[in-house]
């Protein structure tokens, strides 16, 4: 085993990180008398962990400022949400990474059927072991809503439009932070708090109310549907459908988003509260 630099048969050098932030750099060489020596060098590269810990504690006491000035403690739903379960796909074979996509969605689809389910995020682990437990708990406190942090792991569409209402439930405008402006096309009379709304867009002009219900019915019980129309009855291109349960809504989103309908590709997502969109 040649090292290239020095004479053969010297062991390889090594670098080892120590607990207090220093590194031990070990190398071997021949001294003037030709004897093999081991040289251990202590290097300070990393930070002092003790000092670091104290500083972190201090900063926890910082008051929020600037755009966060009026935020309460904990994450604010406007700015922070926990996304759906998304794997870091690891593989020893780079080719597999290309092909692994359906498997990932498959996995999240299967989460529905596993026995173990986290109360907060719906992932396949015990609630007490939930990695996002803290965040979701604080989110729940912030929004004042209880219950599971959204069954966001349905038939395979991670990251798809689970809007800023990160808990996943439909939050009526009156209960939301920020604006209380009515959402387009919603009658304020009927209480839709307990239902789950999806917004379908890119519908063809000649879509009728019946078509809309027909489209949505396979996924579950349609509590209410609203098709946006012009005065002459031509469809404006989008519609809202309220389902009885979140499962139904998620299924609808899974199947209809990207669905080819009369030569158009539909979009389908959770209906979001009105606010400036991040894109």
């Amino acid at each position: 085993m040649t090292t290239g630099d020095s004479a053969p048969q010297l062991p390889l050098p090594s670098v080892h990180a120590n607990k207090n932030g220093t590194y031990t750099h070990t190398l071997y060489k021949l001294d003037d008398q030709g004897r093999k020596v081991q040289v251990k060098r202590i290097l300070r590269i990393g930070r002092d962990m003790e000092v670091s810990k104290r500083a972190i504690e201090e900063r926890k006491k910082w008051a929020k400022f600037g755009a966060a000035k009026h935020h309460g403690p904990g994450p604010d739903t406007e700015t922070t949400r926990v996304d759906t379960e998304l794997p870091l796909r690891l593989s020893t074979n780079p080719q597999q990474l290309d092909a692994m996509e359906p498997a990932a969605e498959e996995a999240s689809r299967k989460l529905k059927d596993t026995a173990i389910k986290c109360r907060y995020c719906g992932g396949p682990h015990w609630s007490k072991e939930c990695p996002s437990k803290d965040i979701i708990q604080s989110l729940q406190e912030a929004t004042g809503l209880g219950g599971p942090g959204g069954d966001d792991a349905p038939s395979g569409t991670p990251g798809l439009g689970a809007g800023p209402s990160g808990s996943g439930r439909y939050v009526p405008p009156s209960l939301r932070d920020g604006t209380g402006a009515p959402r387009p096309g919603m009658e304020m009379g009927r209480r839709m708090d307990d239902t789950y709304a999806v917004r379908i867009a890119n519908l063809p002009e000649d879509t009728t109310d019946a078509d809309l219900i027909e489209l949505a019915r396979p996924f579950g019980h349609v509590v209410r549907s609203y098709l946006a129309k012009y005065d002459d009855g031509t469809c404006k291109g989008f519609a809202f459908v309220n389902f009885a349960t979140m499962d139904m809504a998620e299924r609808a989103i899974a199947k209809l988003h990207g669905y080819g309908y009369a030569n158009l590709i539909l979009t389908c997502e959770h209906s979001k509260p009105r606010e400036p969109k991040p894109m």
């Binding site: 630099d5 202590i42 300070r44």
Partner: peptide, 22 residues
Amino acid sequence: WIQFRSRALLAIEAEDEIVTVL
């Protein structure tokens, strides 16, 4: 890689150095 790292670290001044004869 080990060799490269080792060479590079030599440039950094060590806080401490222990030499043992083998």
